[in-house]
Amino acid sequence: MLRFALKRVFGAIPTLLVLIALAFFLIKVAPGGPFDTDRRIPPEIEANLQAAYNLDEPLYIQFGLYLGGLLRGDFGPSFQYRDYTVTELIATGFPVSLRLGGFAMLLAFFVGVAVGTIAALKQNSFTDHAAMAVAMTGISIPNFVMAPLLVLLFAVTLKWLPAGGLGDWRNFVLPVIALALPQIAYIARLTRGSMIEVLRADFIRTARAQGLPQRTVIIRHALKPALLPVISYLGPATAAIITGSVVIEQIFGVPGLGRFFIQGALNRDYTLVMGVVVFYGVLIIVFNLIVDLVYGWLDPRVQYQ
């Protein structure tokens, strides 16, 4: 298993290099630069700025310099937030995004699995139909529609929770819910489908024949195999949460990496965009590896080679 993990890590290096190169050249292709503003600057001053950030060098040298910096763990200075380095910005933004995404993921997993299991057990009942109808709505409504609705109800009208910003736990409630809702819906549908299938399997019938109570049958025997499709969905779900948080952070004014990414792209903050791309790239690769390892633990039929 260790060999498998190491192999995967080394295998990821070319992927990462391609990702860095693509992102680097794509953002340079975008018209406009970090120093373009409504109020134009005299050419001499612009030349000074370009030189200070190595933008006067040929592109391949810039790329070389960037890779060299990365190897030393240096993401470079931000072009937009001129008093900060990209490493500093990621260090302040990531914990916020992690908290937001982590709670959304936990909420999505537990609520999704619970709702899906209940729906499966009461298959074709009113509860089942109601749960699945809500889930379907949850999947269909994009979070940039859901988020403002939540704000309007809970922050503006009822004044129970803040409408946005960073503060205590209360500021996280609405963004976490908005981010988790589509995932709750998706996970609930996945769980329901696989649970129905598992409940019809021979080993469940055997368990029931042994006279085990319903609870034990479900929790001890049915849940683990029923979760397999949910677990393999966790990789894509992470990606979905990360991309979703880009939108949610923007709407709620949460200073996470997603907001930096969007603002960075709009401002042509080359180093900040690159930093976030590389950081998330590594994160997703690592997370997929973890999912594969967990999968093997859950399903003994999976072999690592």
Binding site: A155, P162, G164
Partner: peptide
């Protein structure tokens, strides 16, 4: 806050 709709909501929420 650059998004003006978000700004108006936060103003209405007394933030």
């Amino acid at each position: 806050i650059e998004n003006q709709d978000a700004m108006l909501k936060r103003y209405r929420a007394d933030e």
